[in-house]
Design a binder for these strands. Structure first.
Length: 695
RNA sequence: GGUCCGGUAGCUCAGUUGGUUAGAGCAGGGGACUCAUAAUCCCUUGGUCGGGGGUUCGAGUCCCUCCCGGACUACCA
């Protein structure tokens, strides 16, 4: 049988953010799969790269007063170190800002042109004259054209939920300069994706490259049912200057959109690896003998399952054999949050904890489905300590030292079928790994560990060693225990590469192939036992969380640093500038303008869930004296109705009433925060009474 | 609102094509052991498998319906 050839990728981390535990889900899932394939004898090349292009990079570099290249170089070192220290076995970690990438972009682009997929169209976008750039949706905020809610994002309103283009905003404002942007036209280049409709229908639904859930999602949201397909929208792939990226050769002054070159970064990284190893690029990207596997998060599904196969197909490259989509990580049941300390950077984890723990925990939680999964910190501690230390490593720990001087028996002794049974389970475990159902693989492996420990218990090596007549019996018992341990180490090698290595050293026989689990090891010397894994200390987990809470970070959004140097020396709190940066100050208003807004203290006298509403609570506010207001407030994710009843809040009492889907809303409850579960309703200090105006 | 995925012991989940008294790990209770990283082993408590209908000799497993949770998406089917 010829050797299986695999090219595997993880999605590209963006240069503007540090690597965090959410991204590590993907890196670890991919790495486990890659290591498994290599252990099975496949020729498996694993590449990734930094995603570097786009407006955000440009702006951040500008803010930090340096070139994009300097920024990229610095982040590249940090990202690579994070991944390496988590034992991610990348063959090459490249960059989309590389010569190889530029050249491949050009090659693919010219083919897409040749096939007649590109068209040009005028696009009206908001332009920030002060910064001199066109503004992506997220860099514009303003008043919702439908409901009048102020300071809404550029693409949709968080109050009424309607969607619009940034140009439709009333009173739009650039989040970069705070100035009023002006609409400007520019020519953009589009790829007519609809030309691929039939191809994509077949590929997504029939090729087996996608999980069923993904195939359904694409049909439901983009392709439409086969009998009445929906046209795919043209894909805008160019951006006018200035834009940090590659200039399009046949359209000077225009640059490829970051999502055009990002997946090409996979190829560019492969090219770099090929050049270093004397390999031929086409053997990996233009060969029926090579399977291409992409691992991605669910947020970027359609880039990888519609645009990307379209591009590949047009340019004559191999289509992905599989696109493995995984869900998101929550920590203790919640989305990662900086204020709660659950936005944990990879480096913060590494400063306190062993990567093996997280690799095992993720492995035990991941399946081949797209479900989100939770990193419960308590479960993390008990699972790692019970499974890895108590069951698995303990097997070696309690038997190796008895045979340190005599080594393993020359012939594998009778063990009641334990080794054979575990060997026979190997295929099932391999299937689970192959299909990315590592949770199942871990369960199967731990079930084997559960059978191995009673064996040691029953045969009591600690008693045998007291009797010099029974030395060979002792050796046999330990030979069995250590072989059962070694089987587990082989099965766990994709997840715990360091332990596999240590096992090889302990038993003087390196673990190099999955099938080693089928044949018992005999007659080798046994080295002095050394601890393979420490138990997780709960305090280390706590420290990591504490540290992440404090470390509000100066990275992330790219537009975060303009408040630097403004802090006075006498401010011991040293609050972060993130919140202010996320939402810059509104333009000045005079006192009369301020007086237009009538803020009043009000008491919540009733609060209830609204059937069918995702974000809203229905509140009844009392202004005193029998004056009531019905208000729908978007605070459902942050507050339970019961905890609000009786509270004093501040409401906008003279806001034009608005007819909402669930009834009339006669005001607003004042709150701060970015939204979602992070909403903080304001309360007056004690002594305030309903009806009082806020001046 | 639409689409999809779930709802099995306190917690995390297994339950293959419907087939005997529904399982594991953790946690809880009791005991044993002391080789081992306060590890291990044995025994044990605990579930009208979300509710209700139906198909069947037989349903956690199939069908219908409702309730709840989540993800995606949105007023456009």
């Amino acid at each position: 049988m010829s050797q299986r050839r695999l090219l595997v990728t993880s999605a590209l981390p963006y240069v503007n953010a540090d690597i965090h535990l959410g991204y590590m889900v993907e890196a670890i899932q991919t790495d486990i799969w890659v290591r498994f394939q290599r252990l099975r004898g496949a020729l498996c090349v694993y590449v990734c790269a930094d995603d570097t292009h786009g407006t955000a990079t440009m702006i951040r570099a500008r803010r930090e007063g340096r070139t994009e290249e300097e920024l990229i170089a610095e982040v590249h070192v940090a990202h690579e170190a994070d991944l390496r220290d988590f034992d991610i076995s990348l063959d090459n970690f490249g960059s989309t800002h590389s010569a190889e990438c530029r050249s491949l972009c050009g090659e693919i682009w010219s083919r897409i042109r040749e096939v007649g997929l590109v068209k040009s169209d005028r696009v009206r976008q908001l332009y920030d004259a002060e910064e001199g750039i066109f503004l992506a949706d997220r860099f514009v905020r303003g008043t919702c054209p439908k409901c009048g809610a102020q300071d809404q994002p550029g693409d949709n309103c968080s109050k009424c939920g309607c969607t619009y283009s940034p140009a439709e905003l009333v009173d739009p404002r650039s989040t970069l300069s705070g100035t009023v942007p002006e609409p400007r036209d520019a020519d953009h280049l589009f790829i007519e994706l609809e030309q691929f409709h039939e191809f994509l229908e077949n590929w997504t639904q029939g090729s087996g490259a996608l999980q069923d859930e993904t195939a359904n999602y694409l049909r439901g949201h983009f392709l439409g049912p086969p009998d009445q397909p929906e046209p795919l929208r043209d894909w805008d792939v160019s951006r006018p200057a200035p834009y940090f990226g590659f200039e399009i050769p046949d359209a000077p002054g225009n640059y490829w959109y970051v999502w055009f070159d990002a997946p090409i970064g996979y190829m560019a990284s492969t090219q770099q690896w090929c050049d270093k190893h004397g390999e031929n690029f086409d053997d990996w990207w233009r060969s029926d003998d090579c399977e291409i596997h992409h691992f991605i998060g669910k947020d970027i599904t359609y880039f990888h399952t519609l645009f990307w196969p379209g591009m590949l197909s047009a340019a004559g490259f191999t289509l992905p054999a599989k696109v493995h989509v995984h869900g998101f990580l929550t920590i203790d049941g919640e989305k990662m949050s900086k204020s709660k300390g659950t936005y944990v950077k990879a480096r913060a984890y590494l400063n306190h904890l062993n990567p093996a723990y997280l690799r095992y925990y993720y492995a035990s939680k991941l399946s081949n489905r797209i479900d989100d999964f939770d990193l419960s910190l308590n479960e993390f501690v008990t699972k790692v300590n019970t499974d890895l230390v108590g069951k698995f490593v303990n097997l070696a720990s309690r038997s190796a030292k008895f045979v340190a001087e005599i080594g393993l028996s020359a012939v594998y002794p009778e063990d009641g079928g334990l080794f054979a049974a575990a060997a026979a389970t190997g295929d099932e475990i391999a299937e689970a790994y192959e299909s990315c159902d590592t949770g199942r693989a871990m369960r199967l492996i731990m079930a084997l560990a559960d059978r191995a420990n009673p064996f040691v218990e029953e045969n009591k090596p600690w008693e045998l060693r007291k009797d010099s007549e029974r030395l060979s019996e002792l050796q046999d018992v330990c030979t069995i225990a250590l072989n059962l341990f070694r089987q587990l180490a082989i099965y766990l090698a994709p997840v715990l590469p360091r332990v596999a290595e240590q096992t090889g050293e302990l038993l003087n026989s390196p673990i190099t192939h999955w099938d080693q689990a089928k044949v018992p090891l005999t007659g080798t010397p046994v080295a002095k036992f050394r601890h393979m894994l420490k138990r997780v200390e709960e305090k280390d987990v706590r420290t990591m969380i504490e540290e992440s809470r404090e470390d509000t970070g100066d990275q992330g959004r790219g537009e975060g640093d303009d408040c630097r140097g403004e802090t006075g020396d006498a401010d011991p709190w040293n609050d972060s500038g993130d919140a202010l940066a996320a939402e810059p100050l509104a333009p000045e208003c005079n006192f009369d303008e301020f007086l237009k807004v009538d803020l009043r203290v009000a008491r919540v006298v009733a609060a209830e869930h609204v059937s069918g509403a995702r974000k809203l609570l229905k509140l009844r506010l009392s202004l005193g004296g029998g004056q009531y207001r019905q208000v729908f407030a978007g605070i459902k994710a942050a507050y339970e109705p019961d905890e609000l009843v009786g509270r004093l809040v501040v409401c906008v009492a003279n806001l034009t009433p608005r007819q909402m889907k669930f009834g009339l809303s006669e005001g607003m409850v004042v709150a701060s925060g970015p939204g979602g579960s992070e909403v903080f309703v304001l309360s007056p200090d004690e002594g305030a009474v309903p009806g009082q105006r806020v001046h």
